[in-house]
Amino acid sequence: MIRRPEVFHDETPPPALRHREAQVQELIRLLHRACSDHNQGALLAGPSGVGKTVLGRTVLDEFGREFGTQWTWIQALGTTTGELFREAIRGAGGTVANNAPNDELPERLRETLAGDELLILLDEADDVSGTDAVGQLTSVPGVEVVVICHEPDDWLARSEPRVRQYLHGGRIELDRFGVDELADILRDRARVGLVDGVVTSSQLETIADDVAGVAREGIQTLRAAAESAVEREHGRIHDDDVDDAYERARSRIREANLTSLPFHHLVLYELIREAGEVTGRQLHARYEEVEEQVYANRERMPISRRDRRNKLDKLRAYDLIERERLDHRWLYTPVDSGLHADRTVRIPRRV
């Protein structure tokens, strides 16, 4: 029934960028502006699962091939400014040691480019705001940046004035798809990835409606429905296969999200998961109680309360934890207490 499983993988580009024509044209316009005027970037924003990364990678790839411009995709979540520079140097075709001094990296990137241009797609860049990483990258001649984040107003508010100026007028926001729009996207995936005729248009519309226009969840629900149909030896997808697919899809997405997170996020997640429920004050106190042991022999250092709050927002956006107001306090709980973080994250037992 599933003819091409890779069609349903997150990293597989779609058969077509449907219902994003206006955003595609706007990003192309901004890339032309960046390459001609310089010091003018773009900000792609929107909730998880609406196709920000897919749109950015697809457009930059086509733009790079058409105009001969180098580009690179960097996952910025949990990275330092120095690490971003190292990834940029490698993306431009250069080599750099992980222990190269940070103050030498801008000049190393300039030398690697040798007058050429480099477009950087800075994905999952929520933590980058306030570090001036974008400002430092774009201070290198020829480097322009497209930032991907979730909350554009918050991101810009935490950024330095020169970064806000750099991104001024370059904002593109992606909303969730309408039911008919997402049904079209699912139909494309089914046409390429499934055997012909195993899913109906009505079922695709039902999935699109039930996932509230989130493309990633819709695609994974379609995949899970097909898997359930195979397991039940159905010749096609039945409605009960669809009904049972939602939680399997959400569980798969949560697991993938958790796997993608860096160490700081995983520590906070494990503290919440082990507690079952914990207030914000209790969470910070517990973090500070165990931080010396948790971070022992690691390059990473414990983070501030402000940084912890930012990372808690990411855990919520990834559907890994929930937060509710309780008597003027925030109460955090895990969505799936059976989902463990990387086993290298070890929280000391309470004495």
Score class of each variant (00 low, 15 high):
Thr259Leu: 02
Asp241Tyr: 01
Glu299His: 04
Arg20Glu: 02
Thr79Tyr: 02
Thr80Trp: 14
Gly169Ala: 15
Arg252Asp: 00
Gly51Cys: 10
Asp180Met: 15
Leu121Met: 08
Ser139Trp: 03
Leu137Lys: 13
Phe85Asp: 01
Ile303Lys: 02
Val54Trp: 12
Ile2Asn: 01
Val146Lys: 08
Pro106Cys: 14
Glu181Lys: 12
Arg86Ser: 05
Leu84Lys: 03
Glu124Asp: 11
Val214Met: 04
Ser36Ile: 15
Leu105Asn: 11
Arg316Gly: 00
Ala133Trp: 08
Ala114Phe: 10
Tyr246Pro: 00
Glu324Leu: 02
Leu174Thr: 03
Ile219Thr: 05
Asn98Glu: 13
Ala22Glu: 05
Ala208Arg: 06
Arg29Gln: 13
Ile172Asp: 02
Leu77Arg: 11
Ala190Trp: 13
Leu137Gln: 09
Leu17Val: 11
Thr72Ser: 01
Arg65Leu: 08
Thr221Tyr: 07
Ser260Gln: 07
Pro14Cys: 05
Arg18Ser: 04
Val345Gly: 01
Thr138Phe: 11
Ile207Tyr: 01
Asp240Tyr: 09
Phe263Trp: 07
Leu261Asn: 02
Val128Arg: 04
Leu339Met: 10
Pro14Lys: 10
Gly178Pro: 13
His340Arg: 15
Ala275Lys: 03
Thr58Trp: 05
Leu27Gln: 02
Gly51Asp: 12
Leu121Trp: 04
Ala76Asn: 06
Gln75Thr: 11
Gly91Asp: 04
Ala215Asp: 04
Gly169Lys: 13
Ala224Glu: 06
Ala249Tyr: 07
Trp71Gly: 01
Asn39Trp: 14
Leu315Ser: 03
Asp61Thr: 00
Val198Trp: 13
Gly135Trp: 08
Arg162Gln: 13
Arg343Trp: 10
Asp327Glu: 09
Gly338Asp: 10
Val199Glu: 01
Val54Asn: 05
Tyr295Asn: 07
Asp116Phe: 01
Leu118His: 03
Glu324Met: 07
Ala100Asp: 03
Gly46Cys: 04
Gly193Asn: 09
Ala341Thr: 09
Asp210Glu: 15
Leu204Ser: 03
Val145Ala: 05
Leu55Thr: 10
Arg306Lys: 04
Gly41Gln: 04
Lys311Pro: 00
Leu222Trp: 10
Ser139Asn: 14
Thr58Val: 15
Glu205Lys: 15
Ile347Gly: 01
His168Glu: 15
Glu83Cys: 08
Leu156Thr: 14
Glu144His: 07
Leu261Val: 08
Ser48Ile: 07
Gly91Glu: 06
Ala212Ile: 01
Leu156Pro: 04
Ile347Glu: 02
Pro302Lys: 05
Val147Asn: 05
Arg349Val: 04
Ile148Lys: 11
Val54Glu: 13
Arg33Ala: 09
Leu339Phe: 12
Thr344Leu: 06
Glu255Trp: 08
Ala16Met: 06
Gly276Val: 12
Asn102His: 11
Tyr166Cys: 12
Phe67Ser: 02
His234Val: 03
Asp180Ala: 15
Leu121Pro: 01
His32Gly: 14
Arg346Cys: 02
Arg90Lys: 12
Asp244Gln: 14
Arg346Lys: 09
Ala88Pro: 07
Ala125Ser: 11
Lys314Asn: 01
Val59Gln: 03
Tyr318Arg: 07
Leu261Tyr: 03
Ala317His: 08
Ala45Tyr: 05
Ala224Asp: 00
Ala285Thr: 12
Ala76Tyr: 02
Pro302Gly: 01
His150Ala: 13
Leu60Asn: 05
Leu204Asn: 09
Thr80Ile: 13
Val278Ala: 00
Ala16Asp: 06
Ile253Thr: 02
Asp243Ser: 08
Ala317Trp: 09
